[in-house]
Design a binder for these strands. Structure first.
Lengths: 357, 357
DNA sequence: CCCTCGGTTGGTATCGCTACCATGTGCCCG
DNA sequence: CGGGCACATGGTAGCGATACCAACCGAGGG
């Protein structure tokens, strides 16, 4: 038998259980459990004793057992769509990390944006015993998917939706504020003739960014009207927009694209026209996706703490699911959490040539 | 009691347990367990019946219960280093998917390449009860990390190491063959003056790709000696290499960079010199990373089925761990699995201007 | 013909923890 | 003064799966 082998290996392994702590503290396992889980009906002296024992013995609860007993081995789903978003990598890291911390399982499911595909994906999730779902962009914008999920009684957290949907929890940065900040940055550099490439019209974040841009322009005042083109968050659409923006005089001295892919496209088109970035043209983006640091010159952009956001989303889901099971039925508190963004200045933005410092 | 209420509501909710499957298949839970875990003492008819039931009911074992009962910390680790590799995203998707399929938990751990950091990361993994680790590049090349892991008796699968390490399982594409294929492709287009940007010298894949390139050049024969520069897989290093390659006459008509980031850098530098790609210069890369399709012109490159490779790695780990525990001690079969690559032709490669078709 | 033996099954205990109920205090209120 | 209520605690019964052993069964050897 290989039992002896196991024994030998484990030696150091065997962990201290709740019973050990209970015995050590001279109370029942139940009391220990209550203390550890922040239960309410424990007297303060007892609590201190137990906490002491926990520290002394280095007790750490067995996740598997806890999950099993509390039937909280909940699975969470992560529905992802367009994987071109270099988002996904960081997003997954953050989400998985949080999931591991909470001891919940994370199930991935790919999903196109068509109703049929959504339905299929949701069905697969339900079949997999998933009780809550994280929705990264652009799926978080799809009312169809949200409705489908809601019908299956899933909890939902939308990540990085520009405007929080009314029917789901949400974690995002303040797209409006971030765009305003970036625009102010451009204005502070001395730019006057601005160009803007809008994002995909069916993502609410696009609006927020656009409005932030407009707000900054208006509060500054006295500028020639900015040139605006519609984009769709793809490199290709950025190229088209850039072509139009750069074709007609007077050419903008700074172009703010609603995401990095489009900003990269603007830079590519600028190069084609032998405009040097940033000396002849300043280009800034949004997202701080992988491409931002991997092109030359590096792209000045807005950094979103994607991993953190994904993690928070999972946290929210876990508390919602657990609290929901515990607390009275359906008391759906729809939290909306904002996290901090950051303007990352790289090489693609500079004072305009004609700046009147 | 709210039990009835739960029952009523649950219908779709309540996950199916091993007992349900057993009842459905008309056998005991034990037998189901044996089938699911690939146990040996099950007759074929019984096995089929059970598998059928599993599929019908959509059964998926409860991780918590399994871990608790078997005390088998069946967690797998994924040690990732340099996340600049846009690799990570797809890699995670594949790995997580496989992990979910097998019902094992995947624990992520970030790890720098220094010995100290490796030691710390491994310690964290051990503390987390991890029994096997997936090593994506570039970590799979680090003998230090492998040694560290092996000392902790972990199973290891290295992914995309150019040359399989002697002491670990491995899944990769045939870098040599892929590079040779790409080079033949360039030669077939009519290119004669070739440039090559080598990859980071401490990754064995770099060698393989370089040798594949050389092999194709030699088997073709009668070419001027190719121009070669050392790169380090970073955009920056690609820029430096491109500068040198394009500075001295005669300029190559095609440049093969050992990865996409460097290829993108070559393209950027070409643009700066007002060389049009692909008309004035053909550029090809390797990896088919996100950037390849998101620049203009699109990069002709070698596609690696990253997600699939990651999935296979997890599969191998699972069978190794389960088989290893069961089967006689230490019969470490070090499998090395090759998966198919694919040459993806986009717009960055064309016949040279001076081609003598 | 019985007994052993290897392949195949089912029963039972148990993993570590928590839900749930019972119990036991002290205290206020009717 | 007894019932009720808010706290504080302990006991018991599982959660879903596997380990381990017992039981069965057909075949072959003594």
């Amino acid at each position: 038998m290989n039992k002896p082998a196991r024994k030998a290996r484990s030696g150091a392994r065997r962990s201290v259980t709740i019973k050990d702590v209970a015995r050590y503290a001279g109370v029942s396992p139940m009391t220990v459990s209550r203390v550890v889980n922040g239960g309410q009906y424990v007297s303060d002296p007892t609590r201190q004793t137990v906490l002491q024992a926990v520290r002394q013995l280095g007790y750490s609860p067995n996740l598997a057992a806890r999950n099993l007993a509390s039937a909280r081995g909940e699975r969470l789903g992560l529905l992802y769509g367009n994987p071109s978003a270099s988002y996904l990598s960081e997003f997954l890291v953050g989400a998985l990390d949080a999931a591991t911390r909470h001891g919940v399982q994370l199930v991935l499911e790919k999903c196109e944006l068509t109703p049929a595909a959504s339905r299929r994906a949701v069905r697969r999730l339900v079949a997999g015993g998933v009780v809550g779902v994280v929705l990264p962009p652009p799926l978080c914008e799809s009312a169809v998917i949200r409705a489908e999920l809601q019908a299956a009684r899933m909890r939902i957290v939308a990540v990085a939706a520009g405007r929080p949907p009314a029917d789901a929890m949400c974690v995002s940065i303040d797209d409006f504020e971030a765009a305003r900040e970036m625009t102010r940055y451009l204005l502070a550099l001395g730019h006057q003739r601005l160009g803007f490439v809008k994002g995909h019209p069916n993502q609410t974040a696009s609006d927020q960014r656009w409005h932030g841009f407009v707000a900054a322009v208006q509060e500054h005042g006295g500028l020639p009207p900015p040139r605006v083109e519609q984009g769709f968050f793809t490199f290709r659409s950025g190229l088209d927009a850039a072509r139009k923006l750069l074709a007609t005089e007077p050419v903008p001295t700074a172009i703010f694209a609603s995401n990095d892919d489009m900003a990269a496209a603007v830079m590519a088109e600028a190069h084609r026209r032998v405009l040097e970035v940033p000396n002849d043209l300043t280009v800034v983006g949004f997202d701080d996706s992988l491409i931002a640091a991997n092109i030359w010159p590096g792209l000045t952009t807005i950094h979103q703490p994607i991993a953190q956001m994904a993690g928070e989303a999972v946290d929210m889901l876990v508390t919602a699911v657990r609290g929901g099971r515990r607390g009275g039925g359906g008391g759906a508190e729809l939290v909306h959490r904002l996290v901090a963004h950051e303007l990352v200045a790289r090489e693609s933005a500079a004072r305009p040539r004609t700046a009147t410092a």
